[in-house]
Design a protein around this nucleic acid. Structure first.
Length: 439
RNA sequence: GACCCCAUCGUCUAGUGGCCUAGGACUCCAGGUUUUCAUCCUGGCAACACGGGUUCGAGUCCCGUUGGGGUCGCCA
């Protein structure tokens, strides 16, 4: 039997991380088993299910590389089938008509629970059982003739030939109802697996109030899709070796439902950030540059006059200081902006110390005559000055750093100078001397 | 309230009766490398919720307690 799983979101305009993790597990499981991963759009809520909302789901899946097999099934198109099945159940005596709750809205079709205890083997939670009296009859078709979630869900899973339903913990109670429906319809049920929820620090379901909760937000912040994928996959599942940073293929190879935990877990943003950095290291400089540029464009930091080669060099120079694409614009803005701000504390500590401006004068003179202006050359030049004057390298390095970047922290000074180029460095040092009265 | 589920360092987790004086990762702290920051290296802090059983032996099995969560719609 070929495994068939599905992701069945109702398009609301956002894709919650708990939801997308269910998609990830479905995808991982079917890819591991060599099966199919299908997509069903539960778009019966006409008001919310706009084309844009559907596109948001598609975009999130595409971004994370969760490719689905075949065309997505739009639940709206299955209405006839849903109602047919309801009629069949009515004919079989497995459902009845009633004005449930005495609302006065008219009769609806109600599913009759079989009056027997129901049990099943959950692929992650194990033995699950429910007493007959603990599951009540429920509505299948509303009095206005529209099918309800349970009907559509089960009927569509049957028509799609779903063999494994992997979904959130909040559906366990529904499973008893669904199981009874499968039996009444006369179709063997799929395997069910219920995933623990992603919760916040208080143990409540993780929501928008707790921070970034939607896939789109992580994307906007400059996270790598493989890092979010990796982190989410590890929330409730682990390969059982001490491996954490993994590629999609590695996860596909070692995924199994048996290794999914049944306790809820929290998403740790700090670790996500670290994970992102790890995945970033695995990408090439060009890709990182492209991502940083995209982030800068989003944040309004990009300027059309930035030279591509210079940008590329800056990215290489920043190296592992970048954990998030957005970091570059944040930490290395001075590379691109001649009017970069001077950090007050850095100026006080490195530039206004006695003698610092005099040193900067000397360095300016040395750099003016330096050719070529490479990292090795500037370093050698400053070492010579250090020997001649008997000063430590620190005393020479810091004033230059602040003069050209406005801050005391950043990449290695000599690489930084080489990337900036002689002309820019001289201009910035002169400007700094003018501002701080050394000139 | 009823029913169901869950419970190892702050967080993510390993652990399926002896290999556990409980391992890894993130964070944090200390030291080292470095011109700064970051990286990197070394070391450190830190957990089996509690109480009963079962057993020669329990983080691992059973029962209970406590705590947390989920579900009880003509929502999905």
């Amino acid at each position: 039997m070929t495994i068939r799983t599905r992701f069945a979101p109702s398009p609301t305009g956002n894709v919650h991380i708990g939801n997308i993790r269910a998609a990830i597990y479905n995808w991982l499981f079917s890819r591991h088993m060599g099966g199919a991963f299908l997509l069903r759009i539960e778009d019966t809520d006409r008001a919310r299910s706009t084309p844009e909302a559907v596109q948001t789901v598609l975009d999130a899946l595409a971004w994370l590389g969760l490719d689905h097999d075949g065309e997505p099934l739009y639940q709206r198109t299955q209405r006839q089938r849903h109602l047919e099945v309801a009629e069949e159940l009515l004919a079989k005596g497995a459902a009845y008509k009633e004005d449930k709750g005495g609302t006065g809205k008219g009769e609806c079709i109600v599913f009759k629970m079989p009056g027997r205890d129901i049990a099943f083997q959950d692929a992650v939670k194990g033995e699950m059982a429910k007493k007959a009296e603990d599951v009540k009859d429920f509505v299948l078709v509303r009095s206005d003739g529209s099918p309800v979630f349970h009907l559509g869900n089960v009927v569509d899973d049957i028509t799609m030939g779903i063999t494994h339903v992997i979904r959130g913990d909040d559906h366990v109670e529904n499973t008893f109802k669904h199981l009874a429906m499968y039996e009444a319809i006369g179709v063997p049920p799929p395997v069910f697996a219920h995933l623990p929820m992603i919760v916040n620090a208080q143990g409540k379901p993780y929501s928008k109030r707790d921070g970034a909760a939607y896939v789109g937000e992580f994307q906007k912040q400059g996270f790598l899709p493989e890092a979010l994928f990796n982190s989410l996959a590890l929330l409730g599942w682990s390969p059982g070796e001490d491996r954490e940073v993994m590629t999609r293929d590695e996860m596909v190879a070692s995924f199994s439902l048996e290794r999914v935990r049944s306790a809820p877990s929290q998403l740790d943003m700090t670790k996500l950030l670290w994970m992102n950095g790890e995945h970033l290291k695995r990408r090439g400089h060009e890709e990182i540059a492209a991502g940083c540029r995209a982030a800068m464009e989003r944040n309004g930091q990009w300027r059309e006059d930035i030279d591509p080669a210079y940008f590329q060099a800056v990215v290489a120079c920043m190296g592992e200081r970048v954990n998030l694409f957005g970091d570059l614009g944040q930490q290395a803005g001075f590379f691109f902006d001649e009017a970069f701000p001077y950090d007050e504390k850095s100026v006080r500590k490195r530039l206004l110390k006695e003698g610092a401006l005099d040193i900067l004068h000397e360095e300016l003179a040395v750099f003016e005559g330096l050719e070529p202006f490479t990292a090795a050359a500037t370093e050698a030049a400053l070492r010579t000055v250090a020997e001649q004057t008997g000063r430590g390298m620190g005393a020479l390095v810091h004033p230059v750093r602040v003069a050209v970047s406005g801050t005391a922290v950043g990449p290695g000074l000599f690489e930084m100078l080489a990337v900036m180029g002689k002309e820019r460095v001289l201009r910035r040092i002169r400007r700094t001397l003018e501002i701080y009265g050394g000139g």
